[in-house]
Amino acid sequence: MTPASFLERTAPFAFTLGLFVFWEAVCQIFGVNPIILPAPSAIVEATVTHWKPLLRHSGATMWTTLAGFAIAVAFGVVLGMIVGWSRAIYRGLYPVMVGFNSIPKVAVVPILVIWFGIGEIPAILTAFLISFFPIVVNVATGLATTEPELEDVLRALGARKLDIILKVGIPRAQPYFYGSLKVAITLAFVGSVVSETIAANSGIGYLMSVAGTNFQMPLVFAGLIALAIEGIAMYALFAFIEMRTTRWAFRSSFAAGG
């Protein structure tokens, strides 16, 4: 890759800054009612005044998200390997998983609340339920798309299915797996915030819904921005891990072979 030019490197910051400047300008010039849309300056003010609860609730959201995500990774990898292992299991489980995945998870939260009560557990479980699917699909795809010729080479040598999975399937599935983590962490985040908004005593979602009922719009938006920052940070972390762990996949195109 050629080194990015100054313009390219600064563009992400310039655009973000520009967006806020534009927002502020619109609010000032048209005198937008702060109940409808608070100006960034008001949001900053709210952030400074309420930094303590903001930080505490951000931490709570982060915790539920990561807990749900961790369960999703463990569960997703195991299920993905089972599904990728055999075509029969793949065919059997696929409709169930697609059906489950297409249920909006908001609809599941009330059930979780009945089962586990209001609090952290529904948030963790919602984060888990919403985020395991892409991990399963990606791990299974990575395992199931091993080149048949390579499999022949190894099988002719007397390799068992387990050998092929260990030597070829798992390394081959890694880029798919790390790629799916990026998607899964953002989904887990959505899941925990949705659950917190509906039924919780802590978390940014809870903070926002309380602030909203009190018409503290700048605080609601401060919560939104805190969410965005957390989301970007976690996405960036997993994108970085992806780059570091599977560098070979970015250099070579799969299946090129020849």
Binding site: E147, E149, L150, D152, V153, A156, V168, P171, R172, Q174, T246, W248, A249, R251, S252, F254, G257, G258
Partner: peptide, 12 residues
């Protein structure tokens, strides 16, 4: 030993 049209090397 077998070899095919595609080298099928493991990129990692």
């Amino acid at each position: 030993g077998m070899a095919f049209q595609n080298a099928n090397l493991l990129p990692w």
